[in-house]
Design a protein around this nucleic acid. Structure first.
Lengths: 259, 259
DNA sequence: CGTTCATTTGAACATGCTCAATTCCTGTGG
DNA sequence: CCACAGGAATTGAGCATGTTCAAATGAACG
């Protein structure tokens, strides 16, 4: 793996934009134990950044490219837990047991910024803004997973897939890229694994969306033609399905007004 | 809501056992801006601790009882994202946007320790161990959700329900309670919502497990009779007894081993 | 007691999976 | 440059898991 990696010595601009660039803060606070600008490594497709079970000694910020993290079931099956895009924090799962729970693999040529734990702790001790940014980053991941949970438990495969595409679209837009024309960096197999469906279902949904003039699909390239219609798939509940949910809502509704 | 709450002025022993009691540390470090021992409030069943959308100004440690957090789908449906037990951190979802994403409701009479953000930040600034404990707590939640994701995407309802029961059992044991005799503090509706299945399925699974002499069920009270057999359901990809097909029952507890 | 909510149980149905066959794409070697 | 292999993706058909609908029972509570 190391033969694939190179070192660069430019300043960590991308990290800075996310507000978590530890170099900057260390300079500001005058600590700067290592005066050199942060080094970042370049990895290639299917390279491994972190292996489950490995000692937790650093976190990473993705600078460019994309990655996925996976956990291993006792049965031996893998489950993708997250896809990462530039600016995302990677490796935060390690705090629990000082070992990584997820493995992280790159989906394409990518580069990351490595921040070892001592560095991180120093920064958190000295900078309120770093403290906040790290907590914010973890909170963001948490909320993302909660939303994902929601989609898995309450949506059918059509809705889930539409949600996935809109999510991707929003992520690209947030990073200054086109929100309606982008390349998937993951295979259909990865998508199916992530969304908890069969690859055949993913394939059929792509075909369906294309047939209904919502998307244009060319291999990994996706063009969203009608994002309004795509959003409709999210709310379009199947004709029925109300009894169970009504009960839940009523159960919750009581708390709003208690005489 | 406030009429349900009372104040107590004992020292925060429960928090101390979790290692995140901020009072202790503040005493150690001599900061102690508020010299009074930490107050904790008592809430009752279905009381609301945190409402989604509310300003994020504190986190909480659950001292006793249990709670659930829920997020709201755009469609209006609620999804339970987590159940909380004593020692758990509550409210960490607020860091992302300075607003809470989840609502938190109590499932029974419970008490919490409130730690406002300024307090938390002070403690994190001064104490490396607090810094670590908070990150560890968030990491734990993250990993929990990842594992849950795995179970939802890769397990059928029987496996998921067995997993849920074993999880609960482990949580009670970790807190010094009986691992094989406990009361569910949530309704079947909550369980079904959390696990992403219909309440009828939950009911049928309870009946099945009882029929197969794995559990004894009496309303909310669960006794795990054969935890070994319960664990087998996790790995047994092949369903041993079909739940929904008109069963050709072997009227004794022995189920047909397909392995 | 009567009302209401939680739970159980049965039967029909449907969403999405499995299995199977085919096509498409990419890289490789002759 | 083409043939070929192997993985990725597509498409079809049957079927199983778990949902939905419906009804009955049980428990809690005023």
């Amino acid at each position: 793996m190391s033969r694939y990696t190179t070192q660069q010595s430019t300043h960590c601009q991308h990290c800075a934009t996310t507000g978590i660039c530890l170099n900057q803060t260390k300079n500001q606070s005058g600590l700067a134990p290592s005066p050199a600008p942060r080094a970042h490594k370049v990895y290639h497709k299917s390279d491994c950044l972190v292996r489950a079970g490995a000692t937790f000694d650093a976190i990473y910020i993705l600078r460019s490219g994309s990655a996925k993290s996976t956990i291993l079931a006792s049965s031996g099956e893998e489950q993708i837990t997250s896809f990462y895009y530039p600016g995302d924090l990677i490796g935060l799962d390690g705090f629990e047991n000082s070992r990584h729970v997820n493995s992280v693999h790159f989906l394409e040529t990518s580069s990351v910024c490595r921040i070892n734990l001592q560095e991180l702790d120093n920064a958190m001790a000295s900078s309120p803004s770093i403290r906040f940014k790290i907590l914010q980053g973890m909170s963001h991941i948490l909320n993302d997973e909660d939303r994902f949970l929601l989609s898995i438990n309450n949506m059918n495969s059509t809705q889930r897939f539409a949600d996935f595409l809109l999510d991707l679209s929003a992520k690209f837009e947030k990073r200054g890229l086109s929100s309606d024309l982008f390349d998937l960096s993951m295979t259909r197999i990865d998508i199916a694994n992530y969304l908890g469906m069969a690859i055949e279902t993913v394939s059929r949904l792509l075909t369906q969306f294309q047939r209904e003039c919502v998307l244009e699909v060319d291999r990994r390239r996706i063009r969203i033609i009608d994002s309004q219609k795509l959003k409709l798939y999210l709310t379009n509940q199947e004709p029925t399905a109300h009894l169970f949910t009504n009960k839940v809502t009523n159960n919750q509704g009581e708390q709003t007004q208690v005489v």
